[in-house]
Simulated scan of single mutants.
Amino acid sequence: MSGLPKIVPFSEVYSSAFKTLNEEWITKYFKMEEMDQVSLNHPKEYILDKGGYIAVALLNEEPVGVCALIKTTYEGFDYELAKMGVSPKTQGKGIGKLLGNHIIEKAKSLGAKRIFLESNRVLKPAISLYLKLGFTEIVGATSPYERSDIQMELNLKNQ
């Protein structure tokens, strides 16, 4: 890996990378669902225009990772960490951790107190990363995703 990855805010130029990087992992383990299509095909309208944020990790100016912070209506939570995807060719190089820390700092800067995420236990490296970032498992939340079998939260007041 030559050069250091850098994180930049999403812009239209990264639309296809946002979609591709997420479709890679979703279709490898699961199937694309309606909510995936909405957020990946319309990130500006579905995420950004509603007060959310998308980070893009660049390595040598190539998008190799993405992660979104989606404003949520779930009671007790301000944002959802979602749509984190890292290119298979750069996995295991700390890009997910870099994105996760960036998104957490962004949530704090937006005044968030608690954020949550949804995942699947089959994604062991992702679950491990979320635990390292300080997320803990919660139960009882409903999910629009069939594939979601674990939900986690991060209380930013304790950070």
Rank of each mutant, 00 (worst) to 15 (best):
I104R: 02
I127N: 13
L99G: 10
G85C: 10
L123S: 07
L117C: 04
A126F: 10
V122F: 06
A112T: 02
K106R: 14
K106M: 12
P88E: 10
G85I: 08
G96F: 12
G85H: 03
G111R: 02
V86I: 13
I104D: 00
E118I: 10
S119G: 15
V86Q: 08
A126G: 09
G111C: 08
N120K: 11
E118L: 08
K89Y: 14
V122R: 14
F116P: 06
H102D: 14
I104G: 03
M84G: 04
K97D: 13
T90V: 15
A112R: 01
H102T: 15
K124S: 14
K97A: 11
I115K: 03
G100M: 07
M84A: 12
M84H: 08
K93E: 15
I104L: 06
L99C: 06
H102P: 00
I103A: 06
G100V: 04
S87I: 01
K113H: 12
L98S: 10
V86E: 01
G92D: 09
N120F: 10
F116E: 00
F116D: 00
K106E: 15
I127K: 07
G96I: 10
G96C: 07
K97L: 14
S87M: 00
K113R: 12
E105L: 12
N120R: 09
L98V: 09
M84V: 15
S87C: 05
K113W: 04
I104P: 02
A112Q: 06
A112C: 05
L99R: 12
K89L: 13
L123A: 09
L110T: 01
A126L: 06
L117N: 06
R114C: 05
I103S: 04
F116K: 05
L110H: 08
I127M: 07
S87Q: 01
N101H: 11
P88D: 11
R121I: 14
P125V: 06
P88G: 02
A126H: 09
A107W: 03
L99E: 12
G111V: 02
I127C: 15
N101L: 14
I127D: 08
I95K: 05
K106Q: 14
L117K: 04
S119C: 09
G96L: 09
K93W: 03
L99K: 11
M84D: 05
A126P: 03
I103P: 01
R121S: 02
N101A: 00
A112W: 03
K124D: 10
V86P: 00
T90K: 11
G92Q: 10
K89H: 15
L98Q: 06
F116G: 02
E118W: 01
G96D: 09
N120A: 13
I127T: 12
G92W: 09
L117A: 05
K93A: 15
R114A: 04
I95T: 04
E105F: 09
K89W: 11
I127V: 15
E118H: 07
P88S: 12
L123N: 03
N120D: 14
A112K: 00
S109Q: 13
Q91D: 08
V122I: 15
I104V: 13
A112F: 07
I103L: 12
Q91E: 12
I127Y: 05
K89F: 13
F116M: 11
K89S: 14
H102N: 15
I127Q: 07
L123Q: 07
L123P: 02
A112E: 09
K124E: 15
V86N: 01
